[in-house]
Design a protein around this nucleic acid. Structure first.
Lengths: 145, 145
DNA sequence: TTACAACTTAAAGTGGACTTTAAGTCAATA
DNA sequence: TATTGACTTAAAGTCCACTTTAAGTTGTAA
């Protein structure tokens, strides 16, 4: 008869590979309280599928601009139970607001970069008045203050 | 009779304010060769409108992810004249490619953040099965691998 | 003219997020 | 059984882009 599909567990190196981090980074995150590892009889860490999901989620939050300290705060509140949901929601909404601000800024930076690239391409192929200063070009394109 | 409108020049503090940096940062950029300041008779730096435009442009490039070292390289090539335009163009296009890669990643992170926020809101207002794990919610929303 | 703010330099310090080192233990394979 | 690779800890080191400090000079306003 088929064995029960037993929950897979991973030593730190394999786990690190699975979440695209290094073993020292995993240990560092654990030291910061962002995750807790189970240990086997000889004291070695092992991780489960649930840990993979958790770390991936953390990395998504981190990717939106949350610092390790923000994540720590989030994790602390999470451990305190449902009464801290408003706190967590506020933290995430602040993160979201900060993110959107930076996002808009960075979009403007990108526009200028794109314009500059096009300006160089134009200059290179000699298609246009190659003496036109970039500032004039930007003006003509409708960019910059 | 009206005086000729003389080109305005700014001491480092005023200049720093105008480009939203600090005086030490301006000195640091100068030390890195990203800009050159003129000096008055007593050795103090002064800056012009052209310097303002230049620094703002540098900050746009920086804002797309270029490091101080990238900017240094760019500035070096610029000083070498038009034969380095292909080099500069390649550098900017690499920057653009890196930027777009990160941009897409970060958009995915944002989606997850937004989903989590909505999930908390739902949980808070008790509108739905508040026992639904976030992973299930993500699945239902069509997100995550 | 006296204060004081703004400037000058060189060098050391900071913060965040890891990364590396050192010294040792454990497990799997030849 | 011997070697090798993966693991353990605590602590020190790294990288980047500034920021701060220290010690001194200059410009301006009361």
């Amino acid at each position: 008869m088929p064995a029960l599909k037993t929950e897979s567990s991973y030593p730190i190196g394999k786990f690190a590979d699975l979440v695209d981090l290094t073993a020292p980074t995993i240990r560092y995150y654990e030291s910061q309280g962002l995750l807790k590892a189970r240990r086997n009889d000889s004291g070695r860490r092992y991780f489960t599928e649930a840990d993979i999901k958790w770390v991936k989620f953390l990395l998504h939050l981190k990717g939106t601009g949350m610092s390790i300290n923000d994540l720590k705060q989030y994790v602390t509140w999470r451990a305190m139970g449902d009464e801290t949901i408003p706190n967590r929601l506020a933290l995430l909404e602040n993160t979201q607001a900060d993110f959107m601000k930076k996002y808009r800024e960075v979009q403007h930076h990108l526009e200028i970069l794109n314009d500059k690239i096009n300006w160089y391409k134009q200059k290179e192929t000699g298609k246009t008045d190659s003496q036109e200063p970039f500032a004039d070009y930007l003006n003509r394109m409708g960019h910059e203050e």
